[in-house]
Amino acid sequence: MSKQKEWEMTLVDCDDGNGDCYLEFPPDVLTHLRWQAGDVIDFQVVDNCFYMRKLDELS
């Protein structure tokens, strides 16, 4: 079984006045996860934690 890896990142305010924000992934995180532009990510919030997976990894 592979060991899970954790990262801590900060939500960035879009400054659009709507309270919208985004999560900017550092390049080393994207490389480790093998994520790239165009990937579809499943996003869930459970007990105040974000869980994300690339959709093709869900099967």
Rank of each mutant, 00 (worst) to 15 (best):
Q4E: 09
D28L: 07
L33A: 14
Q44P: 00
Q36N: 08
F25D: 01
E8N: 12
S2N: 08
R34V: 06
E8D: 09
A37H: 07
A37K: 14
C21S: 13
F25G: 04
K3I: 10
K3Y: 02
S2E: 13
L55D: 11
P27N: 04
L11K: 04
K3V: 11
G17I: 08
F50V: 15
W7R: 10
S59T: 08
D15M: 14
M52Q: 06
P27G: 02
H32V: 01
D16Q: 07
D20G: 12
D56W: 06
L11A: 12
D28A: 11
T10K: 15
F43V: 13
Q4D: 07
T10C: 00
D39Q: 05
N48W: 03
G38P: 10
H32C: 05
D39F: 06
D47H: 08
K5Y: 07
V46H: 07
K54G: 02
P27F: 01
E57M: 04
D16T: 09
W35R: 07
W7H: 13
G19I: 03
T10L: 10
C21Y: 11
R53C: 11
F50N: 04
Q4N: 10
C49L: 15
M9D: 05
L30F: 01
G38L: 07
C21P: 00
E6L: 13
D47W: 01
I41F: 08
D13V: 03
Y22H: 11
P26I: 01
V45M: 13
L33Q: 09
E57S: 09
M52Y: 09
K54H: 10
E57W: 03
T10Y: 08
K54S: 06
L33R: 13
L58G: 01
V40S: 08
W7F: 14
Y22C: 06
R53A: 15
M9G: 02
V12I: 14
R34K: 15
Q44S: 14
V46Q: 10
Y51Q: 07
C21F: 12
R34W: 00
D16V: 05
L30V: 03
H32Y: 14
H32G: 04
F50G: 00
N18K: 15
Y51H: 13
S2C: 02
G19T: 03
V12N: 02
T31G: 08
D28I: 05
A37W: 02
C14L: 15
D20V: 00
G17S: 08
C21A: 13
M1L: 11
Y51N: 05
M52V: 14
Q36I: 00
C14G: 00
V29T: 06
M9I: 13
L30W: 01
G19K: 07
W7I: 11
D16C: 05
Y51W: 12
H32W: 07
Y51T: 04
D20M: 10
V45W: 07
V40Q: 08
Q44I: 05
Q44T: 13
V46C: 01
Q4S: 13
K3G: 04
D56H: 08
V29H: 03
G38H: 06
D28S: 12
K54P: 04
Y22Q: 02
V12R: 09
S59M: 04
